[in-house]
Amino acid sequence: MPITPHAEMALRVESKVTQRGQTTIPTPVREALKLKPGEDRIAYEILPGGKVLISRQEEENEQDPVVSAFLVFLSHDMQQNPQHILPLSKALMDNVAELTAGMEVSLDDPLTEDDDE
């Protein structure tokens, strides 16, 4: 069964989990992710319903230690207190739409020096 309703499965492979909780990534998966043994890292995303996505971990140029610590805290809090995760209200979404009306933003554009201040 595909992970998402829109995903199309090209191939299904399996591997065994050892007594120590380890497994070998099957060759077709390594090839699909273009993994280089001893060099690359993989990332796991745990989805609702017990599904897990595996992907090649892209290298990050710089990690801000404050942002990293905050993201760890946020991740822990979300796991420990899922009841605190609430959808955005319509009023807040309307307020955001009003505040940003007419603004054009491209997330692909590089930041200028003025944006860093």
Rank of each mutant, 00 (worst) to 15 (best):
Y44K: 13
Q63F: 07
K36C: 02
M9Q: 11
T24C: 06
G38D: 00
L71K: 15
G38M: 02
M103K: 14
E117A: 07
T24N: 07
L92C: 08
T23E: 05
N81Q: 12
L107H: 04
R20V: 07
M1E: 05
E39G: 00
T100I: 04
H76C: 00
T23C: 07
S68H: 11
N61K: 12
M78Q: 14
A7I: 02
P48W: 00
H6A: 08
Q63Y: 08
I3C: 08
A101D: 13
E62K: 03
P2D: 04
A69C: 09
D115R: 08
Q83T: 10
I46K: 06
D108W: 01
V29N: 04
V29Q: 03
G21P: 01
D77G: 01
R20L: 10
E31S: 10
L92S: 11
T23V: 08
E58S: 11
P82I: 02
G50W: 04
E98A: 15
Q79F: 00
L88E: 06
Y44I: 13
K51L: 11
Q63R: 13
V66T: 14
P28D: 07
Q80S: 14
G38E: 00
E59H: 03
K34D: 10
V67W: 06
N95R: 15
E39M: 05
G49N: 01
V105G: 00
Q80L: 12
E45H: 11
G102I: 02
L33I: 05
L86F: 06
L47E: 02
V105E: 05
Q83A: 14
R20K: 14
P37C: 05
V52D: 01
A69D: 13
R41H: 13
V13Q: 04
A97K: 15
H6W: 09
T24K: 11
I3Y: 02
Q19A: 12
L47S: 03
R30L: 14
V96Q: 06
V105K: 10
T4H: 05
D115V: 01
M103A: 12
R41A: 13
D109G: 04
P87G: 01
D109M: 05
Q79N: 15
Q83F: 06
M93N: 13
E45A: 12
P65S: 10
